[in-house]
Structure formats: structure tokens, C-alpha cells
Amino acid sequence: MSTLTLAKALNDGLRAAMEDDPKVLIMGEDVGKLGGVFRVTDGLYKDFGDSRVIDTPLAESGIIGTAIGLALRGYRPVCEIQFDGFVFPAADQIITQLAKMPLRSLGKLRLPVVVRIPCGGGIGAVEHHSESPEAYFTHTAGLRVVACSNPADAYHMIQQAIRCEDPVIFFEPKRRYWDKAVVDKAAEALPMHRGVVARPGTDVTVLAYGPMVKTCLEAATAAAEEGRSLEVVDLRSLSPLDTDLIFESVRKTGRCVVAHEAPVNSGLGAEIAARVTEACFYNLEAPVLRAGGFSTPYPPSRLEDDYLPDLDRVLDAVDRTFAF
């Protein structure tokens, strides 16, 4: 048992994966001597050398494209995209090439590539450093998409993602990088595509992932003081979704709120709402509601507190599910 920040838990997870399998490589901008702008790869360059921890030229399509080539040669590259807003130059390689290779080869090729993306806002950054692009990738067949919300999951899930034979888009909640928690490294990890009930409750199901899990847990604490019991589910896996867990919770509570930082329009919440409505229609006391970002570009940071769904906006959505 050790107390780790989320960033350090990722770092330890990466180190463990590299020790387990000599084919695991780290690649990205500033991941070497600097250890990444968030220090997630700190110390790996020193211990594993520049053939396994590769400071790449500054071009995201190049990172993913060459990672594909390395994977075709039998390596397991873990790519760091420095910030969420910088993944788009690599979108073609991810969507057109990385996601489709097994299908195109009738199953003969596999690309065990992990793309780590620090995501979300809340750190006072300039534009393109606070985005939540997960829906672009959950919409893309052939990718697996996961998001960790806490240090223990960060440690275990990054290793699971690296062991996975399919490409995995791995979202890291950047405003939670410095949150600490106890990590039991020896504990048996939940399968990567299973969600978890982060806090049990009886009145409303609140579904969240990544940075919003903590916000929703705080909302649940506040709601409890008013006598309302929220069940917070940490989805963890965004594609595929753990629909069994989601439906089970909603059937129990009869109400559902989905919270994410990304804009609600065509966001992951819309997909979840449609599936919950289809599967739990006769259990629902109210429509599935969403608490999320607005249909605007991410605002200047002085306005991000208005943009990001906070505890009160989550509770407002919860309240509205009782108004039907």
C-alpha cells in the first residue's frame, strides 16, 4: 500500500509495464529527460534509455503513425499526446489507420498501441489545453476508450491498456493529476471495461468518468446532507460501456443523470441516455438528464468555472429529475 498522486500512480504503472515486457515503448513530446510536461514519464528515460523512451519530433500524426509501424514490428508503444487539444493533428492516423487495421487485415494484424491523453479543464490553461474530445473516439469503431478518475485505477488501468491487443485511447484527468490516494498495487484489478459504483445510493444514478467523478462524489455528499441518496457510478470504460452496471443502477433508482465536461450536444451522455431509455424505460421516473459543457468552444480560463459542470450544476440536474 502506498499513497500516490494520480500522476505518480501512472508513472509507476508505466514502469511496471516496461519492466514486465521489453516491447513496451514510451513515445511523445518531452517524455524523455523532462519526464513529460506533467511528469507522468518522470525517470523512465533515465532507467530505460532512449531506445525505449523516445522523445519524438513535434508532430502528433508522426507520433501515432510511427507507433503503428512499431506495433506492426511487434512493439507496444505508449504514446503521450501532450494536451487534449493537440490530438487532432493525429486524428487521421488514429481514426483511419490505428482503428481499422485488424478489420482491414481480416484479423491478421493487431495494433496494441495506447494513446494517453491528458484531458479536461480546470487548470487555468490557455485555449486547446482543456478539452474533452472523448466522443470523437467513442464514435470510432476499432478503438477502446477508457478514463481513469483516481490513482488506484490509474495504476492498474494503464497496465491493462498496455496489455490489451487492441488500440486504447486512455484519458487522464489533468486537474486530478495531483490528487492523492492510497494505491494497493497488489490488489486484483477490476477488468478494464467494467465500471464501478463509486458510492452506493438509492434515489438517483449519477454517471461520471474521469475528472467529473470527484465532482459527483462531492455532490453526493452534499445531497446526503439534504436527505437525498445519490448513487455515483464511475464508468471507467467509455467504449465499450459497462451497460449492465448502468442499467442495474438505473433500474434500482429510477432516475439518471450523466455528467461530463464535454459539450452535451452529441456527447457520450446522449448515447448513454438513449441506451438507458431503451433498456430501462419502464423503470424511469424521469427523463435521463445531462450535466455537461456548453455547445461552445472551451472558454477563456477566467470563465471556465461557468463552463465546467460543478457540484451545483450536477445537483441542479438531480433536482430536475424529481420535477417530473
Binding site: 500524426s61 508522426g62 503513425g65 510511427t66 507507433a67 509501424g69 512499431l70 506492426l72 489507420q97
Partner: peptide, 8 residues
């Protein structure tokens, strides 16, 4: 890019 990665 795939060819270069493969070469690496």
C-alpha cells in the same frame, strides 16, 4: 509513417 516506425 508506418514504414518509418517499422524501420525504427
Amino acid at each position: 509513417l508506418h514504414a518509418v516506425g517499422y524501420a525504427m
